[in-house]
């Protein structure tokens, strides 16, 4: 564990807490893409298949349970909670993400560290996470003004993988045999997809104005 990865995990945890806060405090999920939440639930379920087989550390196991539990809870809430579900932007959240899921799974069948069930699903989860934010970014553009908590949620979710990139650079420099090309390349693509969001987020912060993404 290094400071970059810890910062990344904490930033990721903060993004989840901000989203939970938004949903429970405002009893609303307006501006949140259910499709991105479902993609993230798939990402965690596919990535943490080793939850019971490989014990890394208490921290690792607890964080995996937190990410799986929170993503499923948010999906459940947005689908079935009688108050929250009414504020879901169903007609705006129309990204056909099964194309993404199919493409990522096909890529994982071709490009993986080892051809085993667990490794193929791990690679699938890495590729899928890189594009999982797309429905959310599309929804933000369509829904015009973005409330503060939603903007902060997306910001922290994008920032966490940027910390992971620093972690991979640090590990590459300090650990002789460290190579995680699948994670690194996907992480760069994932962070790049946030580039324009980060730009408009910074502008709104500098001008102390509402976050507006151009349509």
């Amino acid at each position: 564990m290094n400071i970059f990865r810890l910062a990344g995990d904490m930033t990721h945890l903060i993004s989840v807490l901000v989203l939970l806060l938004k949903i429970y405090a405002t009893k609303s999920c307006s501006g949140i893409s259910l499709k991105t939440q479902e993609l993230y639930a798939m990402v965690f379920l596919a990535r943490y298949l080793d939850l019971f087989s490989d014990f890394i550390s208490l921290y690792n196991t607890v964080m995996k349970l937190v990410f799986i539990g929170s993503s499923l809870a948010i999906v459940w809430c947005m689908r079935y909670h009688r108050v929250v579900r009414r504020s879901y932007d169903r007609e705006l959240d129309t990204f056909r993400y099964w194309i993404l899921v199919g493409a990522c799974f096909t890529l994982a069948l071709v490009l993986h560290e080892k051809f085993s069930f667990q490794e193929v699903f791990w690679a699938f989860s890495i590729y899928l996470e890189a594009v999982a934010i797309l429905p959310q970014l599309v929804l933000l553009q369509r829904s015009g003004n973005v409330d503060n908590l939603t903007g902060q949620y997306v910001f922290f979710l994008g920032a966490y993988r940027a910390f992971y990139i620093l972690n991979w650079i640090y590990r590459y420099l300090t650990e002789p045999r460290f190579t995680r090309w699948i994670s690194c390349v996907s992480g760069l693509v994932q962070t790049a997809l946030y580039a324009d969001f980060f730009y408009y987020y910074f502008i709104s912060w500098k001008n102390n104005a509402k976050l507006q993404l151009p349509a």
């Binding site: 990865r5 995990d9 080793d50 490989d54 964080m63 560290e113 791990w122 994670s183």
Partner: peptide, 10 residues
């Protein structure tokens, strides 16, 4: 082939 080392990252 050697099993890949366990994934220690989240």
């Amino acid at each position: 082939s050697p099993a890949t080392e366990p994934k220690d990252e989240l």
